[in-house]
């Protein structure tokens, strides 16, 4: 049978990739020592990335923006879409906190101009502003209510994370996730083909 070329060092690198991209800094550090795997990035950058993620998950967009600029001053300048996402999140947080006047002011000063530049931004801005039309407990359309969900924060955090990884020329796809996808695809293809018994392994 086909001999699969794979060493323990290969496996260790795949695990390291996962720990680094997903931001398990301490585990990545321990792993680097225990398994003698060279760290693919500066471990401090993992921590910065995680701090940014946590700030966004907390809803502290201002802190996140400051930290992004500390890590890479060019990132937001060169990535207007990402910057808009963060500003949008900030607007959402204002609305969530009931700081309506500040929200409107912020939207007018910071976001309206950007919306005019880009129709996609404008759509997002309109959607976000329409949050103001609904009382906290009313049943807003799910598309709009979702903006207030933790999922929205996660989404923004994920986009920032991916952009940072890309700027560090570190892959943003987690290899182990791709591996599972590939396994799944292969199993599906096999099952469609012949009477080859598939295997349950996870």
């Amino acid at each position: 049978m086909h001999e699969v070329q794979l060493t323990k060092a290969d496996m260790n690198r795949l695990v390291m990739d996962y720990l680094v991209i997903e931001g398990y800094k301490s585990a990545a550090e321990e792993f680097s020592q225990e398994a003698h795997v060279a760290p693919p990035v500066d471990f401090d950058s993992i921590e910065s990335r995680m701090n940014i993620r946590e700030a966004l998950q907390r809803g502290d967009v201002e802190d996140a923006i400051v930290r992004v600029n500390e890590l890479d001053p060019d990132l937001l300048d060169t990535n207007p879409e990402l910057y808009f996402r963060l500003q949008q999140q900030k607007l959402i947080e204002y609305i969530r906190q009931g700081r309506i006047m500040e929200a409107i002011e912020f939207a007018q000063e910071e976001l309206a101009a950007r919306g005019e530049e880009n129709p996609e931004f404008l759509g997002e801005l309109e959607k976000t502003m329409s949050l103001l039309a609904f009382e906290a407990n009313s049943s807003a359309p799910s598309e709009i209510a979702e903006l207030l969900s933790p999922g929205q924060r996660m989404k923004t955090a994920g986009e920032v994370n991916a952009a940072i990884l890309e700027s560090l020329s570190q892959g943003k796809e987690v290899k182990l996730v791709s591996l599972l996808k590939l396994l799944s695809w292969g199993e599906t293809m096999l099952s469609e083909r012949a009477d080859i018994p598939s295997k349950v392994i996870l």
Partner: peptide, 21 residues
């Protein structure tokens, strides 16, 4: 198991590649 996942995927893909996919 993680290693088996890799090997399993590799064998499946190789088989598919050799049989016309």
């Amino acid at each position: 198991t993680l290693e088996t996942v890799y090997r399993q995927a590799a064998v499946s893909i190789h088989y598919l590649g050799m049989t016309g996919v």
